[in-house]
């Protein structure tokens, strides 16, 4: 289970990065408020090593990845975004969240190495398992539920 301090920092960093990088706004979400019909989700994760070690991961409904990519790239919302571009945008978002999170949690004096982000697609059953695992923090981004975690 995530530490309470980590949850608070994770929330602040996520909202700030979504807002600054993707111009998307977020809010906190209680576990019993998480409702979504989507059946395809994208999980991006990356590790960090050094004096502190662990993993940061984010899970989003596939439906919001296009909007996310359009906003980051400064494109019109109705512009076609291929799947590779959407995946790359999510990886970059996670990369930015992780970089800021590491500094917020562990300070600016330690040197921590980041691994390259990887992604995998999840179905609704896998999404529900993550929600119930209590290891992920649930937030809402533009009314879409998003899960995020740091395990260290």
């Amino acid at each position: 289970m995530m530490k309470n301090d980590n949850r608070k920092t994770l929330c602040q960093v996520c909202f700030s990065v979504f807002e600054q990088l993707a111009f998307m706004f977020g809010d906190e979400l209680e576990e019993d408020e998480i409702e979504i019909e989507a059946d395809r989700f994208l999980r991006a994760s990356m590790g960090f090593t050094g004096p502190q070690q662990g993993t940061v991961a984010i899970v989003v409904p596939l439906t919001i990845t296009s909007l996310m990519a359009c906003n980051i790239l400064g494109l019109e919302e109705d512009q076609h975004i291929d799947e590779d571009t959407a995946v790359d945008a999510l990886k970059e978002l996670l990369n930015t969240i992780t970089g800021r999170l590491i500094t917020s949690l562990f300070g600016e004096d330690v040197v921590i190495n980041l691994t390259i982000p990887v992604t995998e697609e999840l179905n609704h059953t896998a999404w529900e398992a993550l929600v119930e695992s209590n290891e992920y923090l649930a937030i809402t981004i533009e009314d879409n539920p998003v899960l995020i975690t740091i395990q260290s």
Partner: peptide, 24 residues
């Protein structure tokens, strides 16, 4: 970069890097 380690940034400047910008 997304990284914010002072130690790493100082190392980069010692190697001649002219500026360091943090994303975004």
């Amino acid at each position: 970069s997304t990284e914010g380690s002072k130690t790493r940034i100082e190392e980069l400047f010692r190697k001649g890097v002219r500026a360091y910008l943090r994303k975004p």
